[in-house]
């Protein structure tokens, strides 16, 4: 966490000050969710935290949430919250995995199997 005050970004601040324990509102992201900087997004507000900036920079090309956290050496739970907020605000786009409630369809499973067999 930043620890240095002065950030006043209204959207990010609640998450930052709760140390990532605040439940993200809309975008439920998994550790495997692929993130990418939104092409159309403008620059982050000047008040955005250092961590959010670093995350957006890290996602200049496609990367999973877990990989971004590992490379940034930030806790997963924090990156989940930041990423969720950045997706909501349109700075990051998420390419989803399997929705939690759904079970993977046969077509996808076959694709996974074929891929694994090829790699073997």
């Amino acid at each position: 966490m930043t620890g240095n005050g002065g950030y006043r970004d209204s959207a990010l601040r609640p998450y930052v000050i709760t140390g990532g324990k605040f439940r993200p509102s809309r975008a439920a992201l998994g550790v495997e969710t692929l993130l990418l900087r939104a092409e159309t997004a403008g620059p982050l507000p000047v008040t955005a935290t250092r961590e959010s900036r670093a995350l957006v920079r890290m996602c200049e090309r496609l990367l999973s949430l877990a990989e971004a956290a590992a490379h940034l050496k930030l806790p997963l739970s924090l990156v989940k919250v930041l990423a969720s907020e950045l997706v909501d605000a349109g700075y990051l786009v998420a390419r989803s995995g399997i929705p939690q409630a759904a079970r993977p369809d046969m077509e996808l499973l076959q694709e996974v199997l074929d891929g694994l067999r090829r790699l073997r």
Partner: peptide, 10 residues
């Protein structure tokens, strides 16, 4: 991750 990737499973 390659740009062409559309889905991740875990």
């Amino acid at each position: 991750v390659p740009d062409s990737v559309r889905q991740a499973v875990k």
